[in-house]
């Protein structure tokens, strides 16, 4: 396999948004297959795209083309024996708290502390089933389904705030936590 360059973005992907979209998909693809370093394999795909385009050739459907490249990169990866994660290492399945997990707790407490009392009630109902959805829905004048949708939105917002807060304190997990983005760059 080629060494990934410092910036694997080929010239065709001048649009940062599309580059990031494609990279996230590639990482998801390699994660499903149990690859150990999905971000490096994603970079490898971009390297190959850049290589193919050196001569001026342009793919008609970039995403479909990248999907094809990902398949080839994976097959080559499979030929290198022993790289699949058969089982999670004990240190990951255990319940021990890492220093990062402790930082996570502090950030989480801060983020949750910014919720309004009503939002907090909803999330408590969601996590601990302390309050009946029917009662909450009655108080808020909404349906139980509507409340559940609000919970999903709140959860999304909490995760976004959590990611932003991590950025502000400079934790390296920030990129991966933020809205499911891939890490590595």
């Amino acid at each position: 396999m080629h060494e990934p360059p410092a910036d694997p973005r080929p010239g065709v992907l001048v649009d940062d948004g599309e580059y990031s979209q494609l990279r996230r998909r590639l990482i998801m693809y390699f994660e499903r297959r149990g690859c150990q370093a999905p971000d490096i394999l994603a970079d490898e795909c971009f390297s190959r795209l850049a290589h193919s385009m050196k001569s001026g050739w342009q793919p008609s459907g970039l995403r479909t083309y990248m999907f094809g490249i990902a398949g080839n990169v994976y097959l080559e990866y499979m030929r290198s024996a022993g790289r699949l994660l058969e089982e999670l290492p004990e240190s990951l399945t255990g319940d021990c708290d890492t220093p990062a997990a402790q930082d996570f707790r502090l950030v989480a407490r801060d983020v949750v502390g910014r919720l309004s009392p009503e939002e907090r009630d909803l999330m408590e109902a969601h996590y601990f089933d302390k309050v009946s959805w029917k009662d909450l829905a009655g108080e808020a004048g909404q349906t139980a389904g509507g409340l559940r949708l609000r919970v999903m939105r709140l959860r999304k917002r909490l995760m976004k705030d959590f990611g932003n807060q991590l950025i502000s304190i400079g934790l390296k997990q920030k990129a991966r936590v933020q809205s499911g983005k891939s890490g590595g760059k």
Partner: peptide, 22 residues
């Protein structure tokens, strides 16, 4: 949870859930 990105996301969501209880 074998993927690091998902594990980080899980840790974040777990921390958020735990802070409601704590």
């Amino acid at each position: 949870l074998a993927a690091r990105r998902r594990r980080d996301r899980y840790e974040a969501m777990r921390a958020i859930a735990a802070s409601f209880f704590r």
